[in-house]
Amino acid sequence: MTFILRRLAALVGVLIASSFLVFAAMYAAPGSPENFLVQGRTVSPEVLAAIREQYSLDDPFLVRFWNWLTNVLHGDFGRSLANQQDVGELLAGRLPTTLMLVTLAAIIIIVLGIGMGIVAGTRGGVVDKIILLGSNLGFAIPTFFAALILMSIFSVGLGWFPVFGSGDGFFDRIWHLTLPAFALALPSSAVVARITRTSIREERDSEHSVMARARGVAESLVMRRHVIRNSMLPVSTIVGVHIAGLIAGSFVVEYAFTLDGIGTLLVHAVQRKDFAVVQAIAIVLVAAFGVINLLVDLFYASIDPRVKVETNR
């Protein structure tokens, strides 16, 4: 319990510090903050006043940060600097696509990555060689390249999947997001497969597995209870890290498939220098990243009895 509270407190601390970083970043830009925010767009005096108000540019620096942070905590992310839309609404509209994409990719990493790793680790022989080679190459394939190749083969060539867009309704969305999710999950699956394989190899010859065999426990049970189960401990942290990493990877894949998710929104905002949107997305993603990492640590503590005891002391 104290472990969870301590981790939560640390997360809150990091989030406050990183939101300060996100807020203060604009002051690192050359020129006045006003010029930076407007970026040479022609704006009416009313809009300019609204922007000054949004960033409380008439107040001292720390007050500006405080105003901005409290607004963010109330869910008010201000308005887009490029087209005056409400950033919170903009984000909310884009969230489902990104969430679904990341969830699908996470499932693929778990099923494909761990599955392949277990097959390679337990079977050996040609299957093992092929999976090992595949994972050595797989991790080197950039998601955007995988996206293009998958798109040109399965969408343009075979016509099995739509080329662009996110779809409407649950199943249509899944159909639209299948290829993007595979492109996004490919490199991580390769890494997870390799680590699973190594971990299984190590556990297979571990003393407790060998002694379980020596005690007359059936091989299939030794594999399940001692080898695979225990090899999942290190694998679960790696999987967690990679699922958290999907957040950043999703920008690129969303953009490649022109999906209407947060990632595409972020890329366009950076291209258009719409800093209010960039800030909002950065804050949301850092928070999501932190929460996923925390959940992974808690999950790990829950499956490995040794972690619990150490942290409770």
Binding site: H208, M211, A212, D304
Partner: peptide
């Protein structure tokens, strides 16, 4: 300590 599976009671 190596003989018993560390994650099972």
């Amino acid at each position: 300590h190596a003989v018993l599976n560390p994650v099972l009671p």
